[in-house]
């Protein structure tokens, strides 16, 4: 059970935070199809940052001295770097779709094509292979929160709560959850959030009330880019051992689906992300999931092909969308370039 919860969270958290990234863009009126590309770019920047900073004397010494605080700080700095560059990368989309009033779907697709190409081009030149890894060690030994940090011995039990939510987790997970809550509150309970949402519903009315629609849309896509970039790094850190490969296995698109399934509302999105995280987790590690702890791997014993499990998240998404799309209500003005001269 502990394993199942931890694995589900690992998949659900990037989905959740990237889906929220989509919400911020779409609520301001910009379709951000580029989530996947920004994730790829963010993952690359984060891993590159870790790779470079790891080699400095300070962090080498910190690692040798088991200075957990410094290492967690490095993880957070890398998240920040990924978020910052994700935001910068997303400016390409903002500029095209806000200032130049370009087709947002095509602009997003361009970024999705650009990110893996650019990232792989640079990785090949930096690392002389198709993956960029940490300079030394692995993600688990550098960044994972372990019992030892809280003074527990190797054999001591932390209890269900401790072993599920503290031992062998990443602080990134909790930062993402915290950010998710804070940003959801900002979106719904502050003046800024209200203005942002109004730009996605009726920009003309918003403009007539003195809100700068262009600025709000820039804010929306930039926050979106930052979150997606960070989500990309969190994905790389937690699921692929802090490795950048120019690929996030369609997670950005899955996040878009989560966003639509969650009806553009944060709470529903959190639920949807957990559901998809569960299916993703089942497809990735169904053979080692022991639900009731009796040593029997039920899902592996069902005799269902591994390929079906791998297909499941996408199949379920499509089916779920089929049932929910009738009620889904997208922001009214999303995808329509705003033009002051038009009524």
């Amino acid at each position: 059970m502990t394993f199942l919860i931890q694995q589900t969270l690992i998949y659900a958290i990037p989905l959740m935070i990237v889906a929220l990234a989509g919400v911020f863009a779409e609520r301001s009126g910009i379709i951000n199809l580029a989530l996947e590309g920004i994730m790829i770019f963010g993952a690359f920047i984060g891993v590159l940052f870790v790779n470079i900073v790891q080699q400095t004397d300070f962090f080498m010494a910190a690692k040798d001295a088991d200075n957990y605080l410094a290492l967690q700080g490095l993880e957070m700095l890398a998240m920040l770097a990924a978020a910052f560059m994700g935001a910068v990368f997303s400016l390409l989309l903002s500029f095209a779709s806000i200032n130049l009033r370009a087709d947002q779907t095509i602009g997003g697709t361009a970024l999705n094509l650009m990110a893996p190409a650019l990232v792989l081009f640079l990785i090949r030149i930096i690392a002389n292979q198709n993956t960029l890894q940490m300079a030394s060690g692995d993600a688990a030994s550098w960044f994972m929160i372990k019992k030892a940090m809280f003074g527990y011995g190797r054999t001591e039990d932390m209890g269900f709560f401790g072993s599920t939510f503290i031992d062998k987790t990443y602080i990134a997970t909790y930062i993402c959850i915290l950010l998710f809550i804070i940003l959801s509150i900002i979106l719904y309970k502050t003046r800024f959030g209200l203005r942002l949402r109004s730009c996605g519903e009726n920009p003309q009315a918003a403009d007539s009330l003195g809100i700068n629609v262009y600025k709000m849309r820039y804010a929306g896509t930039t926050i979106s880019g930052a979150l997606a970039g960070m989500g990309g790094f969190v994905y790389a850190l937690t699921t692929s051992n802090c490795m950048a490969t120019g690929d996030v296995a369609g997670f950005g698109f899955l996040a878009l689906a989560v966003m639509i399934f969650g009806n553009w509302k944060p709470l529903n999105i959190a639920g949807a992300a957990l559901l998809f995280g569960l299916f993703k987790c089942i497809s990735a590690s169904y053979s080692s999931i022991d639900i009731n702890g009796d040593g029997v791997y039920m899902l592996a014993n069902l005799g269902i092909s591994v390929h079906l499990y791998r297909m499941l998240p996408y199949l379920i998404t499509l089916i779920v969308l089929a049932f929910t799309s009738k009620n889904s209500r997208a922001p009214k003005a999303e995808g329509i370039p705003y033009d002051k001269g038009k009524r």
Partner: peptide
């Protein structure tokens, strides 16, 4: 010493430009 991914970058740039 360069690699083929630069052509993908070019293609992506062209798509980006074709958006506007």
């Amino acid at each position: 010493p360069f690699n083929e991914y630069i052509t993908d970058v070019i293609i992506a740039t062209i798509v980006y430009l074709s958006a506007f």
